[in-house]
Amino acid sequence: MVTGTFEVVTRPVSRTVPAVRLSGWHRLRRGIVPYAYLAPAVALLVVWTYQPLAQTAYLSFHSWNLVPTSPMAAVGTANYERLLTTGELGEAVWHTVEVIAGMLPFTVAIPVVVALLVRRIRGRAQAVYRALVFAPMLVAPVAGAAVWQWLLDPSAGAVNRVLGTDLNWLNTTSTAQLSLIVITGWHVVGFAVLVVWAGMTGINPDYGDAARVDGATPGQVTRWVTLPLLSPTLAFLGLMTVLLSAQWTFPLIDTLTQGGPVGATTNVYYLLWELGFRSHDAGLAAAAGVLFFVGFIVVAALLTRLADRLTHHDD
């Protein structure tokens, strides 16, 4: 495989090509070219992501009910103070942690176990399994929510009738979060399995063979060779889970539980949504948006550093 970077670097000019002295104008034009290619993307980002973010940041220091004829009152950091002292935020953070912890088995543990067990399977069978296991990833969140609501209905749903229970899974404080985690896990487990599987097939078998020649047992090979070599993939999945699981659950929460019952499934993203749209308090919602944005940057930076330190790369 050809590696090597595709970069324009000033190289020594070959003797057969006459040296051309670039005028200042030409040099400027050449310098601008990469920016020209980047311009559409950057313009879109600025207009639709960063400028709104800045507006939101500005709004977070004001109190406003979104009505144009009402004045925006500057309140300094009052919105942030209110956010940080409300019990809701602490609970939402806790629920987010619960979701992340609950998702990790689906995005890391199960995929690794499955991938380890199915290494030998190839060909037609592999294609069939892959197709089935990946399908949930393609289901639209609303459609997925609809069918799960149907399955989890307390009296008419298949789950209760098969298990013989009569629990209202999505409306009982002790089981609501669990149900959401299982549904979200169902959505992504196929994707995670395939990522790990692909990562595993990308591992050079020489390492394993060498270890076996040295007398290592299969278990030891797995533990000391395979897993470490998988670590970039696992780190990626872990990072994705931490950063995105709150977002993955969002359409489900909105359709199935609306953050309930009594707030049992409200995570930070849903709280943000509620503050923005239910409280009609634009300043508070803006402050929450900024807070979570900053929070996630910090978390992402920490995790990336951690991942870099812990993972082994096949260099």
Partner: peptide, 16 residues
């Protein structure tokens, strides 16, 4: 800048 957009919650930019 591009990577950063993943961290911007949708809810923070939708109203503007």
């Amino acid at each position: 800048m591009f990577v950063g957009t993943w961290l911007v919650p949708f809810q923070a930019t939708m109203l503007p």
